[in-house]
Simulated assay, not measured.
Amino acid sequence: MAAEAVAVRRGTGQVLSPVRATLLVVEGLWIWYRRNWRSTVISSVLQPVLYLVALGIGFGSQVRPSEVTLGLPYAQYLAPALLVSAALQTASFESTYPILSAFKWQRTYLGITATPITAGQLVAGQLTWIAARLAFSSIAFLLVAGLLGALTGPGVALSLVFAVLTAMAFAAPVVAYAATIDSEGQQFNVIFRFIVMPMTLFAGTFFPVEQLPAWVRPFAWVTPLWHGTEISRDAAFGTLRLWPTAGHLAYLLALLAVGVHLARRNYLRRLAL
Rank of each mutant, 00 (worst) to 15 (best):
A150C: 14
A150S: 14
L151Q: 08
T152V: 15
T152C: 11
T152M: 13
T152S: 15
T152D: 11
G153P: 13
P154Q: 00
P154Y: 03
P154D: 03
P154V: 04
V156K: 07
A157Q: 02
L158N: 04
S159L: 02
L160G: 08
F162T: 07
F162H: 04
A163T: 10
V164D: 06
L165I: 15
M168F: 08
F170D: 13
F170L: 10
F170W: 14
F170A: 10
F170I: 08
A171D: 05
A172T: 07
P173L: 03
V174F: 13
V174R: 03
V175R: 02
A176L: 07
A178I: 00
A178Q: 02
A178R: 00
A179N: 00
I181L: 09
I181C: 04
S183K: 01
Q186P: 14
Q186M: 10
Q187S: 15
Q187T: 14
F188W: 00
N189H: 13
N189E: 13
V190R: 07
F192A: 15
F192W: 13
F194C: 11
F194V: 06
F194W: 12
V196D: 14
M197Y: 15
M197A: 09
P198W: 15
L201K: 06
F202C: 02
F202M: 07
A203C: 13
A203W: 07
T205Y: 06
F206I: 09
F206R: 07
P208K: 00
P208R: 01
Q211P: 12
L212N: 03
P213Y: 03
A214F: 10
W215E: 11
W215Y: 10
V216S: 10
P218N: 06
F219M: 14
A220M: 02
A220R: 02
W221L: 13
W221D: 11
V222Y: 08
T223P: 04
T223W: 01
P224Q: 05
L225F: 04
H227S: 12
T229Y: 05
T229C: 12
R233L: 12
R233P: 12
D234Y: 09
A235S: 07
A236T: 07
A236W: 06
F237R: 01
G238L: 05
T239A: 13
T239S: 15
L240R: 04
L240S: 09
L240H: 07
L240Y: 11
R241K: 10
R241H: 13
L242C: 09
W243R: 11
P244K: 04
T245E: 08
A246R: 02
G247A: 10
H248W: 11
A250P: 08
A250C: 11
Y251Q: 05
Y251L: 09
L253N: 04
L253I: 04
L253R: 05
L253Q: 06
A254G: 13
A254E: 01
